[in-house]
């Protein structure tokens, strides 16, 4: 790792102030992606600003039909939360299958969606549930938040404060794991609310996205069979040593079907 200057801030204002003053600053949330990258010397921020001391970014609350999860809430906390388990069990389940237990004890919701790894799990849920990302500046809809590979609508000095997940009548997340890294080769989050179906897909393409064709097929016919006729465009799919584009496209359908089945 190259040297850098570490600051632990205790308020959002301090965090914003610190990043504005830094020559090439980076926020660190859980650090489970950033620290390995820095260890390999593939990133060299001048300043690392730790959001771990900001209490207002932590915690889970349920208000009516909305589950609000603070950005610095760890995956383990989400997975273990009886509030989340009760309101959106698929979300608790998703959080409980990110990485491994030790990673879940440090990795955070905010860190995961700000990084927007093409194979991360949370973006599928944010999109699939139609969640809203709340920052120190504004609220961004899930659909607009993820803009490209590792890219989000966030500005450099913008801090995610919480994500507001609306409850769904039924929802499920199905993940096909990379056998080595355990990231999602394909992950599909399906949510059905009031007859409307939303599908969030991760791992398959450069950036998590809504499965519009799948939604079309499932709206009005919320069955696994409805997925059969959907064509998944292969040319948009990621392709790597673990899965070709063709296989990924196939898995999108299989995981969607399984998620639909798990909803019923």
């Amino acid at each position: 790792m190259y040297n850098f200057s570490y600051q632990k801030v205790s308020s959002i204002a301090d965090a914003v102030d610190a990043i504005q003053k830094a020559e090439d600053g980076k926020f660190v949330a859980g650090g489970q992606t950033m620290l390995p990258t820095m260890k390999h010397r593939l990133a060299s921020p001048s300043d690392v600003i730790d959001l771990g001391g900001i209490d207002e970014l932590k915690g889970i609350s349920v208000d009516g039909d909305t589950v609000t999860i603070g950005a610095m809430t760890t995956h383990a906390e989400v997975a273990a939360s009886s509030d989340v388990q009760g309101a959106i069990p698929a979300l608790a389940n998703l959080a409980g299958n990110i990485g491994d237990p030790a990673v879940r004890n440090r990795g955070t919701l905010g860190g995961s969606i700000a990084n927007n790894d093409p194979a991360a799990d949370y973006p599928a849920a944010v999109i699939g549930l139609g969640a809203t990302v709340k920052t120190n500046k504004r609220e961004i809809s899930g659909d607009e938040f993820f803009t490209g590979m590792f890219e989000t609508a966030l500005e450099d000095d913008e801090v995610i404060t919480a994500v507001l997940f609306p409850k769904a009548d039924a929802s499920a997340y199905m993940k096909f794991e990379n056998p080595a890294s355990r990231y999602a080769i394909v992950g599909v989050f399906v949510a059905s609310s009031g007859g409307a179906v939303k599908v969030g897909v991760t791992g398959a393409t450069a950036c998590a996205h809504r499965g519009m064709r799948l939604e079309e097929a499932l709206n009005g016919n919320f069955t696994a069979d409805a997925v059969d006729g959907v064509e998944i465009p292969i040319e948009k799919m990621n392709s790597d040593i673990h899965a070709s584009a063709e296989y990924r496209a196939h898995l999108v359908k299989v995981m969607t079907k399984r998620a639909v089945e798990a909803c019923s």
Partner: peptide, 27 residues
């Protein structure tokens, strides 16, 4: 699980546990 792969330029593209799949307890 385990397959060591080089690309045609001789770059090792399975050089970490992120890409080289080691057997884990649940395998």
């Amino acid at each position: 699980l385990e397959g060591c792969q080089y690309d045609s330029d001789g770059q090792l593209i399975t050089a970490s546990y992120m890409d080289y799949a080691m057997p884990r307890a649940d395998n």
